[in-house]
Design a protein around this nucleic acid. Structure first.
Lengths: 109, 109
DNA sequence: ACCGGTAGATAGTAACACTGAATAGCCCGG
DNA sequence: CCGGGCTATTCAGTGTTACTATCTACCGGT
């Protein structure tokens, strides 16, 4: 899309993935598809997997390997308690930033 | 504040500074003060100067050195045409992301 | 002579998303 | 039976960004 959205996604993409996982557990390929459905059309697959590795290492998700009918086994990620806390914190931080930017957009001071 | 807001500011801080400059020309120290007034209490001065160097190199601002009554000379930045275009693009990108996140926050799919 | 407020610059670090490619399993058509 | 296409994951290398910490510089007051 452009370098602006790329930079904006830093700090939000992880939250977006957590929010998707909050709806229901999912595996990487599925999450990528979900992102495309939700308008994030050009987020590379590799990027999503990198996020998943990160949130797993942070202990925000539980992981379960599930055999697939078609293709290699899936790694199904589900949000755990720490992940839910992190997601709440994400929404708070987003709200903070969003509110201040809204002010700036409408007339500044 | 926390690492979350730090990461979210990547990609938005530059836009925020451009938005402040759109209100009226300003110099670094003044911009930092403006950020604090607007709730961005813990953005380091060094960070702001780095942004200013960047937007100057990108050619988004015009710069004028003005002697100060108190202290070393000020570098006054004013948004030029390219800067205004960039700012508009920033608001578009922000709107895009903001809208999608709003959807996710309210019920997801 | 010193300190606090004003004003700007910079080197080094860590986090993050992207690119591009590799690997691997499975199914179907020719 | 074999090669292309879909599913699914992984990884090395790159560039951008904000933060920390520190340094320089000018001025006024004590």
């Amino acid at each position: 899309m452009g370098r602006q959205i790329t930079e904006m996604l830093k700090g939000t993409l992880e939250g977006i993935v957590l929010a998707i996982l909050a709806l229901r557990p999912a595996y990487g390929y599925e999450i990528t598809a979900g992102l495309r459905e939700r308008g994030f059309a050009d987020i590379a697959e590799g990027t999503v997997y990198a996020v998943l590795v990160r949130i797993e290492q942070k202990g925000l998700v539980d992981v379960q390997k599930v055999p697939s009918e078609k293709g290699p086994p899936r790694k199904v990620y589900s949000l755990n308690v720490r992940g839910k806390d992190e997601l709440e914190e994400f929404w708070r931080t987003w709200g903070f930033l969003s509110e201040r930017l809204e002010h700036l957009h409408q007339g500044g001071k």
